[in-house]
């Protein structure tokens, strides 16, 4: 028997959770690279879930059937409610920039000429597919907000946004550029360059992970952006 045949023979028991650890590890490694075995695993896994459901308890104890005590639920919910977020009676009011952003009035993101074309395209593509997610992040009650030049820096998990309103257009031949300072770093790194919308609303999703950063800043730079700031930052916030 080939290695593949021998492993394929064990995929059903693996899906069921009936292999000793050493054998399970072997099947698992093989599943990552073998499409045929993976197909077998994928086709059997729903059946295993079904086996679990065959033990499902009843809602009420008719004919002596198994049923969980209602006291169990109150025990669990007491702990959960004590730790839950306070209930919001009304959704938080949206800042002005957010109402504008909801119309997808996103800032034009211009390329950083110092970056390769590919990198730039990737950033812009990511920007587009993330628009919906961005709005959700900005409106999320658990996002962290810090006042920033004409607006806020908003963090939701690893994602990081700069949202501003009433941004004046930069002087001719200039753009705004975001800078990030990684935790423990001595110098800022160049991030995106951007222009405000005609309405003055600006929403920039930074590609960096918020969790790795200590600070964010903005400065006015020559078109195409700079590798090091060439002017004093107009806004700076520690995260």
């Amino acid at each position: 028997m080939s290695a593949h045949e021998e492993l394929l023979d064990n995929v059903a028991a693996y899906a069921l959770g009936a292999l000793p650890p050493s054998d399970a590890a072997g099947v698992e490694r093989h599943l990552r690279t073998c499409a045929e075995c993976r197909r077998e695993y994928e086709s059997l896994r729903p059946a295993v879930t079904a086996v679990a459901y065959s033990a499902e308890a009843c809602e009420t104890a008719e004919s002596g059937a198994a049923v969980a005590s209602p006291l169990l639920k109150s025990r669990i919910m007491r702990k959960v409610r004590a730790e839950a977020a306070p209930r919001r009676l009304a959704p938080p009011a949206w800042p002005a920039y957010l109402a504008a952003a909801a119309c997808l009035a996103l800032a034009t993101v211009t390329g950083l000429q110092n970056l390769s074309l590919n990198d730039r395209l990737n950033r812009e593509r990511a920007q587009t597919t993330q628009q919906v997610k961005e709005l959700a992040d900005l409106a999320a009650p658990d996002s962290k907000r810090m006042p920033f030049h004409h607006g806020e820096v908003v963090m939701h998990g690893p994602r990081l946004y700069i949202a501003m309103h009433d941004m004046p257009m930069p002087p001719r031949g200039k753009v705004y550029q975001a800078w990030t300072l990684a935790k423990g770093a001595k110098r800022v790194a160049p991030s995106m360059t951007f222009m405000p919308k005609a309405s003055g609303t600006t929403l920039v999703a930074l590609p960096e992970a918020a969790t790795t950063l200590a600070a964010v800043a903005i400065s006015v730079e020559p078109e195409g952006g700079s590798l090091q700031p060439t002017s004093k930052p107009i806004a700076l916030v520690a995260l």
Partner: peptide
């Protein structure tokens, strides 16, 4: 996002599976 009501709905939906399987 620490929403207790959502958790309660999940509990109502899945506790019979969890309890029955454990039993």
């Amino acid at each position: 996002a620490r929403d207790a009501a959502a958790f309660e709905t999940l509990y109502d939906e899945y506790h019979r599976l969890v309890y029955g399987l454990a039993l």
